[in-house]
Each structure stands twice: as structure tokens, then as C-alpha cells.
Design a protein around this nucleic acid. Structure first.
Lengths: 148, 148
DNA sequence: CAAAATAATTGACAAAGTCAACTTAAATGA
DNA sequence: TCATTTAAGTTGACTTTGTCAATTATTTTG
């Protein structure tokens, strides 16, 4: 019986810690005051056509109330604007303002650069294998969490 | 040019989210009120001979003040006791009480079981490859973060 | 159309993380 | 050797993130 399982957990914890630190440094270097969480919000809004608060809560696995407040903040900072959802009067579409888009792109660029450095000595093939294995495990993990 | 980098980040974020949820469920099932963070603290104390607060802050990459307070809490709950460090009067050794050990083992067992399910359809060899690639990337990531 | 479900918001709070100042002891080096 | 610097731990004050429950305005469904 292997003991790789424990390593697995430690590995994930350390990696995510590293990614957070990296993201914070990037924010600081760019003189932007948003936290990694806001970056995630901007990213999803950017990548999602007709993005709604509900969708964000769902995909980021955050509380709906929390998402409401996160959105309020980026709206206050004029990074995001709301527009009516013609299909549902309870809901509103979110999209980046020009300022928001520019912020996002600045961060995304630095973020991509960091990720690229991170995989510098890892070939495309090796990375693909890594992600494939990871995807299997993530899927198992999700299955465990659903039924518990 | 591959676009695997973005996937990489999403993968880590989702996985760590899944692990947190899994750990919370385990806690709940076991009727224990500690959070994943406390589990991490107990784990490190358990695995480290002559564990100190400073060491914990270092290895968990948390603020020293925060660690002090986390320790206070587990000490209050009688899961951990402090004893003088004979080599340094500023410092104290931490170790699990019987109650703490029993808590820890209960959680560790369930945690291991979850990790085992997570890698159910992943061979030892595949997992090893995964961790090797991961270790390379983590090391790159740490290098980036040091010098920034 | 009444009842149930859904999108979003709000209040109130708990947990986690950050920053700086401070105390006590240890290490260093003229 | 003893003043200076460094280190371990603690504390205060604060911000950010996460949680839970209740509420309003719609939409969906039987």
C-alpha cells in the first residue's frame, strides 16, 4: 500500500498557497488593490456571456450573499456594470466596464506569465498527463462530496 | 503555444475547494467542531517532534500571531499541551494530549479514506508521475515567490 | 391561479488572515 | 562582556472571507 495519498494533500495545500502568494505579488506589482477573490470574479464575468450573480455563486462555490457583496464592490469601483436580464426580471447580467477589462487584462497577463514560469521545465505532454490524472481525481473528489 | 496554463490554475482552485468541502464533511460526520485549519495544526504537531509555534507558522505559512491564537484555542480545548523548551526559554514545545491524539487519528483516518477514494482509479505509477510533475511545478512556483 | 421554487439582497455574525508593536530571551561581535 | 541585533512568542486592532437565516420580487409548476 502506497503512502502517496498524504503527499497528495500536502502537495495541493502547498501549491494553492503558492498560487495565492504569487497572485498577491502580481496585484501589488501592478498597484491594484483587489484581492485574488476579486480577480476570480472579474475572470468569470469576462469569460461568461450573460454572466449573472447566481452563476458566479454557483461556479465559484461561494455563498450567494457573499457574491452579492463582492459584486457590489466591483460595481462601486466601476469595474463592472449590471444590465437587465430580458429573460428574468429578478436577475441582471454582469459585464466588465472598459476600466474593468483593462484591470483584468493587466492581471491576467501577469498571471499567465507566472503560470508559464511555473511550468517552464514541464513539457506539454507531461503537463497534459498531469492534468488528465488531476481531472480524474477531481472528478472522484466531486463524486465523494456530492453524495456525502 | 498551449493553453494548459489556465486549466492548471482552475484545476488547483477546484481541487483545493473540493478537499476543503471533503474535510468539512468528515468533521461533521465525526461530530467534531474543528475546521480544516485546526486539523492542519494538529497534524503538524503530531508529525513533528519538538514542534514549536514558530515552526508551525513557518511550515503552514501563516502569520505568527494567527498561529499563537490557533494554538491557544487547541490548548483551551485540551487537545494540545505546551511544555518548556529546555534549549530556549522563549519557546515551548507542543504536543497532542491523549484527547488530541484521539481526535487527530479519527480525522486522519477519514481523511485518508477520502484521499484513497479520490485516487481509486489512479495507479501508483500514474500517481507518482503526477506528484513528480507537481513537485517540479511547486518548486518553480516557490522560486518565483521568493525573489519577487 | 395558488403554491413552490428561484435570483438577488440584507443583517448579523464567525473564521481566517494581516500588520505592527511589544516582551522576553538568545546570539553576535566589537 | 555587555550593548546591539535577532528571534520566539504574544497582543491589539483591523480587513477580508465565509456562513446562516430571513426577506423581496419574480418565475415556474401543478
Amino acid at each position: 500500500m502506497s503512502h502517496y495519498e498524504s503527499e497528495l494533500q500536502t502537495f495541493f495545500i502547498n501549491t494553492i498557497g503558492g498560487l495565492k502568494i504569487s497572485m498577491k505579488n502580481i496585484m501589488k506589482e501592478n498597484g491594484l488593490t483587489l484581492s485574488p477573490l476579486y480577480f476570480m470574479i472579474l475572470k468569470n464575468i469576462h469569460e461568461t456571456e450573460n454572466c449573472t450573480a447566481n452563476y458566479l455563486a454557483d461556479i465559484t462555490e461561494r455563498d450567494k450573499g457573499q457574491v452579492t457583496r463582492l459584486i457590489q464592490e466591483v460595481v462601486n469601483q466601476e469595474l463592472v456594470i449590471k444590465s437587465p436580464n430580458p429573460n428574468d426580471k429578478r436577475s441582471q447580467f454582469l459585464r466588465l466596464t472598459e476600466k474593468g477589462l483593462s484591470f483584468y487584462q493587466q492581471l491576467a497577463k501577469a498571471d499567465q506569465a507566472a503560470l508559464k514560469k511555473m511550468r517552464a521545465n514541464v513539457s506539454d505532454e507531461e503537463l497534459k498527463t498531469f492534468l488528465d490524472t488531476g481531472a480524474k481525481m477531481l472528478s472522484n473528489l466531486n463524486a465523494i462530496n456530492k453524495k456525502t
